[in-house]
Computed example of a mutant assay.
Amino acid sequence: MAEPFRNLINTDTVALAAQHLQRAWPLFDAVAFARQASDGLDGLDMKARAMQIATALQAHLPANFGDAASVIEAALAPPGNADSQGDDLGQLRAGPHGLAGWVVWPLGEFVARAGQHDVPRAMAALHALTQRFSAEFAIRPFIQAAPEQVYPILHQWVNDPSAHVRRLVSEGSRPRLPWGLRLQALVADPTPSLPLLLALQDDPSLYVRRSVANHLNDIAKDHPGLVADWLHQHLPAATAARRSLLRHASRSLVKDGHAPTLSAWGLGQPLLGQAALALQASEVHLGGSLPMAVTLASTADQPQTLVVDYVVHHVKANGQTSPKVFKGWSLTLAPGETRELQRQHPVRPITSRRYFAGTHRVVLQVNGTPVAEAQFLLHV
């Protein structure tokens, strides 16, 4: 059995943190810190472990935030590397040369808690920390509380030599970062971040560009028209790298059949021809799968580029239904061609969905337009 993910932060992590913090500041009480940080650690989930270590840091680092930040920076390992394809932060760990990897999460949390009164010094500390793990969680309270101080610094960081720092500009300011504080002001109005994304969308590092794509996908959840406009503006004459970024950025909108987004990709035209959806089982038991067959027949005299998805209307506890779009196929249908497509749709328990018995509709959509439907009975 694989090691639980939460064990990436453990008592050995605490011991290494104590060792290097004491090396950086001989007055650091390594024994008392380790005792407080490790108390009941094994019984906590991962985020709770990071928060407990941060609390111990608050109790044992210098009371002056600037001094504490200097101790943390002196305890760090050499910065990680990032090339044009990705990064090595996921492999970094604390070791004899200093602190890196998952132990940096509580260090960033300490900065977020203790550095609110000195934003420039805190940002300098996060600049160092993000090159050893990531400061995407720690920077968010500063963006929320002091955007007028943080954004000028982010505008400088888009030209930083480190891809880790440039990625932090995008990842740290995502409106809906998973696990992170939701930046509600940016959910409502993402325009302060758009110049940063514009500066980074052609970054030489795939690692940075992937973050920009995820940031735009975040924005699409609340402002789909803004992202569609971005596509119409930045797709023409785009490089292959930018097209890949924009395709990833618009994945949710394409999947949802958002017409302006489909139009930007040249997918806005309805199917010229016929479509049929056949479910090859009328009843399915939870834990099984639903075999489906799709037939597309073109009546056009030109090739058609099609995105074919399907929507399952899941029955809820109250008997109503909730639609969920599933990615199907992307294809080019030749003039007069008939194409047969097959899919086994799994109907298995997952943590993000609870199944209820009843009749479920399945709607086939082509380029965002419903073209056929069928239904099956689910037994739970």
Rank of each mutant, 00 (worst) to 15 (best):
R247S: 15
A334W: 05
T191I: 09
Y207S: 11
V119N: 03
A75P: 15
Q375Y: 00
E373Q: 11
D189Y: 14
G115C: 02
S134Y: 02
G108Q: 12
T55Y: 01
T299D: 08
G172K: 02
A59K: 05
R6H: 04
A54T: 00
D12S: 13
W25R: 11
F137Y: 13
P270N: 06
R174G: 00
A128L: 10
H379D: 12
N64A: 05
A281R: 12
T338W: 06
A264N: 07
P192R: 10
V103H: 09
P175H: 01
A59H: 15
V284Y: 00
Q342V: 05
P195Q: 12
A37D: 08
L306I: 13
S173W: 00
V347R: 09
V158N: 04
T239G: 04
R209A: 06
A114M: 12
V71M: 08
Q233E: 15
R167D: 02
T321Y: 01
S352G: 06
L286D: 06
S162M: 00
T11D: 06
E340P: 01
R176W: 00
V325F: 02
A228N: 15
F133L: 14
T338S: 05
V347L: 13
G358F: 08
Y310S: 01
H360D: 04
H223G: 12
L177K: 03
F137L: 15
D229F: 01
Q365V: 08
Y355P: 07
S162I: 00
D83C: 11
R174S: 01
P4A: 02
P192H: 10
H248A: 06
D39P: 03
Q19V: 07
V111E: 04
Q342A: 14
D203M: 12
N81Q: 14
P346M: 10
D67I: 14
F142Y: 10
Q375M: 03
I72H: 08
A94F: 04
V212R: 09
A128Q: 12
G266A: 05
A54F: 03
M292G: 15
V111R: 02
R49Y: 03
R132L: 04
G257L: 01
V307F: 14
A48R: 15
